[in-house]
Design a protein around this nucleic acid. Structure first.
Lengths: 340, 340
DNA sequence: ATGAAAGCGCTAACAT
DNA sequence: ATGTTAGCGCTTTCAT
């Protein structure tokens, strides 16, 4: 591998001059600049990130920890982060946590080893203790995405989760549903909590009671979703509508409804959070609340870069609006069915 | 940030001993080992990847270049790569090329700067010249995934693309279709070429003619797909079936068919490549050929690690079988319509 | 069995 | 305006 020395020799200058012209750190005459650039090209020099990082004490790397890139929402988010980071000359190191604190911690350590400049994180828990632990291990600036953590002073970018859930459930109520089931992911992340709150609030505000038998949390894999939905469908008083709190849950609910021999929307309505491009093509097209995944990633980088530039100030909390799209999966209930 | 020196001081040993116990490079007495480990914990030491890489001349990093992580297929692939790489203590640096050679080259340079140990790449072109250029810039072992490049001697892992396409088109023919439209992505990647070949072969073998008006290549964005599909639907002799050569094309075709006021499968059949979990839930459930995305990633890492361990030998080419799943989108043609 | 020290490639402070 | 040099944190060779 060629080094700065090779360039210096080739150009007939000192390595200091090479470094200076490549980084624009101090004045170098046009003549030498030209010679340096030619030499760089000639010997095929590429600077060693390792050496630069070692010298500078930190690398131009942004760590990104997401639950699972396989979830379309996070894929879009990651893509936006990569794009924005690249435009600022940062590389991104991506890790999938599966919402597992062990994996998250492992990757965190890795990022630390890499002396990353900053971190964008969708935390796997929202607890205060968890947040403090995290704060202890990472000394660099952190921006939270998608979810927040309690009592920690980092910037954050999240969707208006509560509001999104409210709109979806409200819509269901306006359609005439009163037994609305809610299926949610892991209960200790803030998105779930917020969406659950929105769900409950609207149901109560409509004068209905929030019945525990119609709420399932902790459904972070397709099988759990299926089981939960199935149990609800077997209830004596079956729900007439489902609120699926994320795109993976939505998938599970659709499958469960179908396996139960039910037709959506005729027999049962479904509303999802996050369709990510496929909602339109599904059977039936799904009513969803859509999140601004791409903006979320871009904003997160913006906030992080801002910190990396040395700005301190109080933590910024950005809430991105969601968009509620009524498609075909949510209609008034079929009386004959829900009365039995 | 704490360094190896801090550990050495804390443990009352030399930095050489610290290094040796941490890496197991040579014998260190149990007593000292214990003291070192305690000191590590006490001062919260994490080794600097930069320093290690600088010293070693290369980093334990695998570069991964994919067209677009937002495409479910590549997301699953990436996830598998990350998992396998991590289990071998490698970090992965992921870049999205958008099949753009400029972006690909930029990211390649970045990887070079990082002195990555090896590279897993879905090349944005299959040309021989392109491949040679690539070979010149990257000195490290490379494993090609999803697509291959001509005349280059790297290991590769791809799907049985031609065979997959053949089965899908054969199925359409067996249903009784003779005017089968094919919509493909960028023509200079090997997947497209292979799938196109499979498509043509089967049509010819069935005794039908391959008509250029029913073939569109270069459809790498939804709009292009829509336009191409629309144009075909407006043909005097409209196709009675579509073969969509990847999941994004599939999405576009479905939309175009619907916008044209047609119903799939009644008016027209559709067959896709790669449903990635959603095919079942679509309207109608889509007949697809499914790829082993996850295995592809895992195999790629396996091959790469094998090279990194110093094995030379001739290039290995792994072809992963595809799975053809008949769902509801492909049925015999409605005579009343295709005869007009 | 352990320590001392050189040197990886680079940046930046200092010298000229 | 350019060159020289120390030193970032680590691995590894060479002494002891």
């Amino acid at each position: 591998m060629t080094t700065i020395k090779d360039v210096a020799r080739e150009a007939g200058v000192s390595i200091g001059t090479v470094s200076a012209t490549l980084n624009g750190t101090k004045y170098v005459s046009d003549k030498l600049q030209k010679r340096v650039h030619e030499a760089v090209k000639k010997v095929g020099y590429t600077p060693s990130v390792a050496a630069q990082s070692l010298k500078k004490g930190s690398a131009k790397i942004i760590g990104l920890i997401l639950p699972d890139i396989t979830n379309q929402f996070f894929a879009v988010l990651a893509r936006a982060v990569e794009k924005a980071a690249t435009s600022h000359e940062y590389t991104v190191l991506l890790g999938n946590s599966d919402q597992d604190q062990k994996k998250e911690a492992d990757f965190l350590r890795l990022l630390k080893n890499h002396r990353v400049a900053g971190l964008i994180l969708a935390p796997s828990s929202s607890g205060e203790e968890y947040g403090r632990n995290l704060a202890d291990t990472v000394a660099t600036p952190v921006v939270l995405v998608d979810r927040k953590t309690e009592g920690v002073v980092w910037d954050s970018v999240v969707s208006s989760n509560k509001d999104g859930a409210r709109r979806a459930v409200m819509h269901l109520i306006e359609c005439g549903h009163s037994r609305i089931a809610g299926i949610f992911g892991i209960s200790y992340v803030s998105t779930v909590r917020d969406r659950l709150e929105g769900y409950k609030e609207v149901i109560r505000a409509a004068g209905y009671t929030v019945s525990p038998e119609l709420i399932a949390t902790g459904c972070n894999d397709p099988e759990k979703v299926r089981l939960a939905a199935q149990a609800m469908l077997n209830l004596r008083e079956r729900p007439t509508a489902f609120f699926a709190s994320n795109n993976q849950v939505l998938q599970g609910v659709m499958l469960a409804v179908r396996n139960h021999g039910l037709n959506c929307p005729r027999d049962i309505s479904i509303t999802g959070f996050d369709g990510m491009g496929w909602a339109d093509l599904m059977d039936p097209p799904m009513t969803t609340v859509e999140q601004a995944a791409s903006e979320m990633g871009a904003e997160a980088v913006r906030l992080l870069i801002h910190r990396l530039q040395g700005n301190s100030g109080p933590p910024q909390h950005i809430v991105l609006p969601t968009q509620f799209l009524v498609r075909k999966s949510s209609v008034p209930p079929l009386d004959s069915i829900y009365k039995w």
